[in-house]
């Protein structure tokens, strides 16, 4: 079992929304399968709950539009089982933890590394401001994975 699980999500065809996807691919290139399992996906779905329940740490990589463009945020999150009805097949990181807890008996510590995007228009390339943050994300992920490896 991998100690860490990295889940990058977003739409790689909508510029900065593809940040999580691209960051996940870069993580997969530098981390060994023994260190971390890496998943890149369009959106979070309940099917991820099982693998989350078996991880030692889960790192979510995402893009948002909540802060000044290009700003990186790092938030440790906890399970939040109560969610409003919406697209119930598209879930939040917090509700995925709740899902893992309820269905599979537990969940690991979890952190969301998120970058505020500049542009979410059609296109596969990240904006320069967001692209520039990728190395820092990679460093942070490696540090988190190393911390899990060393207990």
């Amino acid at each position: 079992m991998a100690h860490a699980l990295i889940i990058g999500y977003g739409n790689p065809l909508r510029q900065d929304d593809g940040f999580g996807w691209q960051a996940a691919q870069q993580c997969a290139a530098v981390l060994s399968p023994a260190q971390a399992k890496v998943i890149a996906c369009h959106q979070l779905t309940p099917e991820l709950a099982e693998i989350i329940s078996r991880a030692g740490l889960v790192i979510f990589l995402d893009a948002d539009s909540e802060q000044p463009p290009g700003r990186l945020s790092c938030r440790w999150i906890v399970a939040e089982p109560s969610v409003p009805a919406a697209f119930s097949h598209r879930v939040t990181p917090q509700s995925l933890l709740a899902c893992a807890q309820a269905l599979y008996g537990g969940h690991p510590a979890a952190v969301v590394l998120s970058i505020s995007g500049v542009s979410f228009d059609y296109g596969e390339a990240l904006s320069p401001a967001v692209d520039a943050v990728l190395p820092e994300i990679l460093e942070r992920v490696q540090a988190l994975v190393a911390a899990v490896e060393h207990g």
């Binding site: 709950a49 099982e50 089982p81 109560s82 969610v83 119930s88 269905l103």
Partner: peptide, 26 residues
């Protein structure tokens, strides 16, 4: 209540149904 009437309400009320549904889609 719509706040309960969602997938997470299902997994509280009938975890086996929720788990099985997730497995089937998977």
């Amino acid at each position: 209540d719509p706040h309960q009437r969602n997938l997470f309400g299902v997994l509280q009320a009938d975890p086996a149904l929720a788990r099985g549904g997730i497995r089937l889609r998977q």
